[in-house]
Design a protein around this nucleic acid. Structure first.
Lengths: 175, 175
DNA sequence: GGGCGCATGTAATGAGTTACATGATTGA
DNA sequence: TCAATCATGTAACTCATTACATGCGCCC
């Protein structure tokens, strides 16, 4: 549902074709939604069948034909509906990646620590990528989504670092 | 993959049947993984075909037959493998629920604020449910997964409250 | 002339959910 | 006696991914 919201939202201002849409998503909003090309094309086609977007084909030079999607009034209404629902609802999140933490006692303490340190390093690499993006918008209104994203990364990082610190104090306690 | 890890991990200590497994998950680990019964049964069957668990049927009284799953040595090895992979890897998370934040300018500022306040209330209800669980384990080692979960909820709450505060300062700026 | 970018898709597969089926037991 | 609990599943469906197909244009 949030993918539908995303596509409709992006089409709200200008009509575009799928390829351009995906290009924009991949370069600017990859952290928000990871949707593959076939998924996007199929989704756009579904939106068209539902009457939320209309299509006109155009051709630039002798390049392949473009299917340019425009938001219809019905689509705009649907977008508003989805947006309101999205903003007000809070679906308790799941963190399936945290599953391993539940079974930490199945590994020798020192090995677990090593692995989690690698994880920490990976989080840091991710933060190194996104913190600058927030910083460079500083003063201007940072895009809330980006800000929100980095806040979560930082929460994860802080928690893990703290956890590793605590574990060090009582080495070998688990097994 | 993390669901596989979860099931194998739970079977590591005692053999159990699907129903009991699901009962445990639903009552104690619902915040970690939300998997439906048919999914679980299918997953257990897949694990059996892969040789990671073995099955023996038993019957208590005249109740329906139980399929009791045991971890095999191969399954235990697989579990260790999945656990290591899970702990060391960090897949950049996605927050599709945050998509709406990207389109906040499509709503009148005061309406957006109202909606986000409802969202905040929902987060608070969720926190009210989970914070006590952490507290009651205090002093003992809190299960890291639970702790980790609450940390994220709190990060979300703090961010949203802060954001609403900032928005209040510049009312009507967006439209 | 060889590979990348543009632009659209199809087909096969997988993962997961919903709704339904079955049939006995236990408690109000 | 009626509903809930125990215990297992099947069938149909949705959603998304991967791998592949097509064909022209542009640049080195």
């Amino acid at each position: 549902m949030s993918r539908e919201l995303l596509l409709l939202g992006l089409l709200r201002r200008w009509g575009t074709h799928g390829y351009q849409l995906m290009d924009f998503l991949d370069t600017h909003l990859a952290f928000l939604a990871d949707l593959k090309k076939p998924t996007a094309y199929a989704l756009l086609e579904r939106l068209r069948r539902a009457g939320h977007v209309s299509v006109s084909t155009e051709r630039a030079g002798n390049r392949p034909e473009r299917r340019v999607y425009q938001l219809t009034p019905a689509g705009a209404a649907h977008f508003q509906h989805l947006l309101r629902a999205n903003l007000q609802a809070f679906a308790p999140p799941r963190f399936p990646d945290a599953t391993g933490l539940y079974f930490l006692d199945a590994l020798p303490a020192d090995e677990a620590k090593t692995l989690l340190q690698e994880r920490l390093a990976a989080i840091d690499r991710c933060l190194a990528e996104f913190r600058p993006k927030v910083a460079e918008h500083q003063g201007l209104a940072v895009h809330p989504v980006l800000d929100h994203y980095v806040v979560h990364l930082e929460a994860d990082r802080t928690w893990l670092a703290g956890f590793l610190g605590r574990e060090v104090i009582q080495p070998g306690r688990r097994r």
